[in-house]
């Protein structure tokens, strides 16, 4: 019974220790100042970059969005996209001429090479 009483009294002592720590005003003030600083940083954080279709979305945006794309421009952009993204298809449609003139540069040929004066698509 003595052991149980000792344990009970220890429990009481531990219980009375709860909430016994007083927080000084100076500490609270420092913590709140840190909070204000962090909130200021959060407000000043730059906006997240737009996510979309990548470079095609950027071209579209540069041309003023869909309304800015005339039929001819749209065809040109689409053709450029097709040539870069699906060169084999385009090469096939050209009867193999593009591959011949560009030396089979692969899936992502340099755009400028398509416009060499020596080649005529």
């Amino acid at each position: 019974m003595t052991v149980e009483r000792d344990e009970e009294q220890l429990d009481q002592l531990l219980q009375s220790a709860r909430g016994a720590v007083r927080v000084p005003e100076t500490l609270s003030a420092r913590v709140l100042a840190d909070a204000a600083m962090v909130q200021t940083t959060l407000r000043a954080a730059p906006p997240q970059p737009r996510t979309g279709l990548g470079w095609l979305a950027e071209i579209r945006a540069a041309l003023g969005g869909w309304p800015g794309l005339s039929g001819v421009t749209l065809a040109g952009v689409a053709g450029l996209a097709l040539g870069i993204l699906a060169p084999d298809l385009v090469d096939g449609l050209s009867g193999g001429q593009i591959g011949l003139w560009t030396g089979d540069l692969g899936a992502l040929p340099e755009v400028g090479l398509l416009w060499e004066e020596a080649g005529d698509v």
Binding site: G19, V23, L27, V31, A36
Partner: peptide, 18 residues
């Protein structure tokens, strides 16, 4: 921030002190 400080700072300080 004020409410979180009131709730949590005493616990952090108490634990660290002991």
């Amino acid at each position: 921030a004020r409410v979180l400080t009131e709730r949590l700072l005493p616990r952090a300080l108490g634990h660290a002190t002991r």
